[in-house]
Design a protein around this nucleic acid. Structure first.
Length: 274
DNA sequence: GTTAGGG
DNA sequence: CCCTAAC
């Protein structure tokens, strides 16, 4: 009908970026086979991934009129394994996939916002009971609306606990409910969760009113990039800075993640967190 | 069968 | 997005 071109959603782009960051450039089939990215890209072919990546690359390259070095081809070293020791693998992608805060966007868009946090808010918003809903109800609600990870219940439990500790949710008896007062600017006025997509700041030397640690780090990283003319260093520095910022904001979340991974490992399971 | 490049 | 050549 009116949709000959299948538009790429932000989730697909994100999954593609994450997949490239993890497996490397040109490993489209591996990215497609990856169980973490498969649900997002199940309607895409490996050729589509390649084509889309080419388009994104040229788009970003033409954005920065000065620097062409910051193309997202972050690495493709030798055969199949990444030579990047530090920033790759579990920590980065895990953080990217699990820790996402953006309550500002409404999850009831046509494009199925894949953010777990938004899903939780949505589920709790749609409940009729004034006492809130329990874990099972929330899981069921999200299940029938989005894809279901198998460890989703544990994930949800952790996230709910974290939201309660942040004061965004309120737990009464066994049910969870949205605390609308805390959502807007009591202790956490800045959601400040941005993606790692390479967005060069317009004015590198100009810093405006209040900026987060992440923004400052990103600015610094790009200034370093312009000084050293190395995008690789910038990307790595930015990623590390973001991780530090996240840890500073809620170290409790990371602690829980590590705890869960440890539990799964203790049970003898192979933990493939993506 | 997969990937890279041109159309 | 489709097609084709190279691996």
């Amino acid at each position: 009908m009116g949709n000959p071109k299948q538009k790429w959603t932000s989730e697909e782009e994100d999954a593609l970026r994450a997949g490239v960051a993890k497996h490397g450039t040109g490993k489209w089939k591996n990215i497609l086979r990856d169980p973490e990215f498969a649900p997002s890209l199940k309607n895409r072919s490996n050729i589509d991934l390649k084509d889309k990546w080419r388009n994104m690359s040229v788009n970003i390259a033409t954005q920065g009129s000065k620097e062409k070095s910051r193309v997202p081809k972050v690495k493709a070293t030798t055969t199949g394994l990444l030579a990047n020791g530090e920033n790759s693998a579990s920590a980065a992608s895990l953080a990217d996939s699990e820790i996402t805060d953006d309550p500002s966007k409404s999850p009831q868009d046509g494009k199925t916002a894949p953010r777990y946090n938004a899903m939780i808010i949505d589920a709790l918003s749609s409940v009729k009971d004034s006492n809130g809903s329990d874990i099972g109800a929330i899981v069921k609600f999200i299940e029938q609306k989005h894809e279901v990870p198998q460890n989703f219940r544990r994930l949800l439990s952790s996230k709910l606990r974290r939201l309660v500790l942040q004061g965004k949710l309120e737990k009464v008896q066994n049910s969870y409910r949205i605390k609308k007062e805390a959502a807007l600017g009591t202790k956490t006025p800045t959601p400040k969760q941005k993606e790692i997509r390479p967005r060069p700041p317009q004015n590198p030397g100009l810093v405006t009113s209040q900026e987060t640690v992440e923004a400052a780090a990103k600015n610094a990283a790009y200034q370093i990039a312009e000084a050293e003319n190395k995008s690789f260093v910038a990307a790595e520095a930015m990623k590390e800075a973001e991780r530090v910022a996240r840890m500073a904001e809620d170290s409790e979340s990371l602690l829980q993640l590590v705890k869960e991974i440890y539990e799964q490992c203790s049970r003898g399971e192979i933990v493939l967190v993506g």
